[in-house]
Structure formats: structure tokens, C-alpha cells
Simulated scan of single mutants.
Amino acid sequence: MADMAVKQAIRDLNTTTPWDSHSQMLECVMILQDTHDVKTFCFQTTDNSWFRYLPGQFITIELEIDGKPVLRTYTLSSSPSRPLSISITVKANKDGYASQWLHDNLKEGDKIKAHGPAGLFTLHNHLADKYLFISGGAGITPTLSMTRWLFDQGTHTDVHFIHCARTPSDIIARRELESMSARVSDIKVAYACEEPDPYGAWTGYTGRLNQLMLELISPDYQDREIFCCGPGPFMQAVRDILNTAGFNMDQYHEESFEAPITDEEDRPDHDDVIIDDDAKSSVSFQRSKKDTRVQESDTILTAAKKTGLHIPSACQFGVCGTCKVKKVSGEVHMMHNGGITQEQIDDGYVLACCSNPLGDVVIDF
């Protein structure tokens, strides 16, 4: 029976038209458990229409929950190079009304209404010889779709794929990514996990993605077209890394899985901090009763040395935390690499080696 269904689907490709979301429902034909809280839902049409879209695009599904219509957008994790079905990969979230409902209620054989595909976040809009895909959590779906597309093309495309997850067990499609990388040397995959699994060995990167990791994983990232997707704070951290490194942000493209973009005019204007080499700042060291004028591009550590003060420091990359000092007032832009905790930042501490003064700053030293 399965063999006959496959043969029929192949024959239908020559006679049927692409899925029309205005007139055709989607039927859930398979549900895959990716991780403990992530499922992939696979859909076809009842008349075996095929699917046409660009890798990285999304659909909007229409559900009825508690008697009310609910619309939610989900990126297609499948690739248009495999047109017999489409898939969305969804993380369960107790605060996510629709996502949790899908996990708890959608079954094989159920039919739903969907709209699309749509979206501008696709490599087809920014063709390049080399790509860098960066994702966090469920934001892996569009970069996974694009990587599957490039793999299926059967041509050499230079791809560096970085995925950030909470633990190794939370990495979505890990085996498939590693299989693609093993078969095609142009696809290089790396992970950064905030913490290892409790009872498992982890030899990958540990901690949040930082500039040191980026340079080790993708030394030529400055030459790549970068696509990034994930939660807002995650993408802010990636932009901070790139801005600090002087990356050409015309080669950077992002999409939040919380708010996909359908029109160019809807793209958000990010109020990112860009260090101005010509701007001047004043740094005062309160206990030492010393102050100095420096450029914004100088660090607090540089300012201290200029006044003859010695703030203990070691790595000077924001890793070791040796140069931690407390900020009394003013604003700094800090790009650390894990040498300080969020609790310490909330208490007013900064790392002198990687904090640039913005205007007038007072340090307790």
C-alpha cells in the first residue's frame, strides 16, 4: 500500500497544480518527536497537490481553540526541494497558546486551514558564495530549511551552521545536520549549549555565543552572508558581536520567529549601539579621585591605565572576569564573553576590559 501511494504521488506531480491555500485544507499526515518539547507536524493536501515556496518562508495556520479562531505563523522547516509535503517544527510552551494546543491536540488525519507561504527571510533574496546561518532554539527552522535546500541541490555551497541551544538534548535535527555535514564537506556544523546534559559528555562549545566562539567556528565570517533567527535578545547579542567586529551589516539578515516579516517596510529599525571613534567620553574613578577624557572606542581599562591606575586584568577578552568593577553612574556598552553573570550586571558591575564608556561614566575604583 505504501509503495502504491508513493507511485501515485509521483504521478500526481505531473498532473496536479501547487497547493492553493485559498481553497485547499492541509491534512496532518505525520507527527515526529524531535526533542522532549519539540514536534514536527507534516502536512499534505487531500488531493496530493505539491508545494511551492522558498526556503525560509512561513505559513499562517488557522486553528479553532475553545471555540475561537486563532491565527499563528510558523516557518516551514521542510525544503521546497521535497515538494510532496510541508512541515512545521514547533516547540511546546505552556505560555504559548497555539503551540501548546498543537502539541496536546493535533493528531494525524486532522485537517487545518493555512495561508501562505510568505516571507522575505530566504537566501534566494541574497544569493552568495558563502553563508553563515546562526540560530537559537526554535529559530533553527528557517536555517534548517535553507540548509536542506542547499544540500538537496547537489552543488558545492560553502555553509557554516551555528545553532545555540540550552542543552545538547535540546538541539533540533542534530543527527540530520551532522549527517549532511559528514557527506558534504562544504557544510560545517557547530553548536553552543548553555550547559551540558546532566549525565552525558559534551565536547562542543559551552556557554552563550560570543565573538571568540564565532571566530573559532567561522574564521572568515566577515566574508559571509549571515542569516540569523531566534528570540529577540539572542539576535540582539549577535548584532552586538557583529557591530563590535565592524561587520558589514548589509550582509546581515534576521527574522524573529515571534514576528515574521512579509514586507520590506515592516522591517524593524534596530537601535543598536554603534561605537563612534570620534566621540569623547569622561571616565571618573570615584575612590581614586582621578578622571580622564577618552574616546568611546577606548575601554574602561584603557581609561584606568591612562590615569595611572591598575585594574587587575588577565584575558582582556571578557572571559575571565578578573577586571570586574562597579559602575556608579553613566552608561557603558559591554561586549563580554561570559566573564560576568546577569545578576552581577543587574547589580551594576561591568568588565573594564570590554566596556566602552558612553558619555560621562563614574566607576567605583
Rank of each mutant, 00 (worst) to 15 (best):
C193K: 04
E194C: 11
E195D: 01
P196V: 00
D197W: 11
D197E: 15
D197N: 15
D197S: 12
P198N: 11
G200T: 08
A201M: 10
W202I: 06
W202Y: 15
W202C: 06
T203F: 12
Y205R: 05
Y205I: 06
G207Y: 06
R208V: 06
L209A: 01
L209G: 00
L212G: 09
L212A: 02
L214V: 12
L216D: 14
L216E: 14
L216F: 00
L216N: 14
I217P: 00
I217S: 00
I217H: 03
P219R: 03
P219N: 06
D220S: 04
Y221N: 05
D223T: 12
D223Y: 10
D223C: 07
R224W: 00
R224K: 12
E225C: 10
F227I: 07
C228W: 03
C229H: 05
C229L: 03
P231C: 08
P231M: 09
P231N: 13
G232V: 13
P233M: 04
P233F: 01
F234R: 01
F234Y: 14
F234P: 00
M235H: 04
M235D: 04
Q236M: 09
V238N: 05
R239Y: 03
D240G: 08
I241A: 02
I241D: 04
I241R: 05
I241L: 01
I241N: 01
N243I: 12
N243G: 08
T244G: 00
A245M: 06
G246K: 02
F247G: 07
N248W: 12
M249I: 15
D250M: 11
Y252S: 05
E255F: 04
S256V: 10
E258M: 13
A259E: 10
E264K: 02
E264N: 02
E265Y: 13
D266Q: 14
D266K: 09
D266N: 13
D266F: 11
R267W: 06
R267M: 07
R267P: 05
D269S: 12
H270F: 12
H270I: 14
H270S: 07
D271M: 08
D271N: 12
D272Y: 04
V273Y: 03
I275D: 03
I275M: 03
D278H: 11
D278E: 09
A279V: 07
S281R: 02
S282P: 02
S282Y: 11
S282L: 13
V283M: 01
S284K: 15
Q286I: 05
K289P: 06
D291M: 13
V294M: 08
Q295R: 15
Q295M: 12
Q295S: 15
E296D: 11
S297W: 05
D298R: 09
D298T: 12
I300V: 15
T302Q: 15
T302V: 14
A303Y: 01
A303Q: 08
A304D: 08
A304P: 12
K305H: 15
K305G: 14
K305N: 14
K306N: 14
K306M: 12
G308Y: 06
L309K: 09
L309P: 13
H310D: 15
H310N: 15
H310Y: 10
I311L: 07
I311A: 03
S313K: 02
S313C: 05
A314S: 14
A314C: 10
A314N: 07
A314G: 00
C315Y: 00
C315S: 00
Q316S: 05
Q316N: 11
F317P: 04
F317D: 04
V319H: 01
V319E: 09
V319G: 01
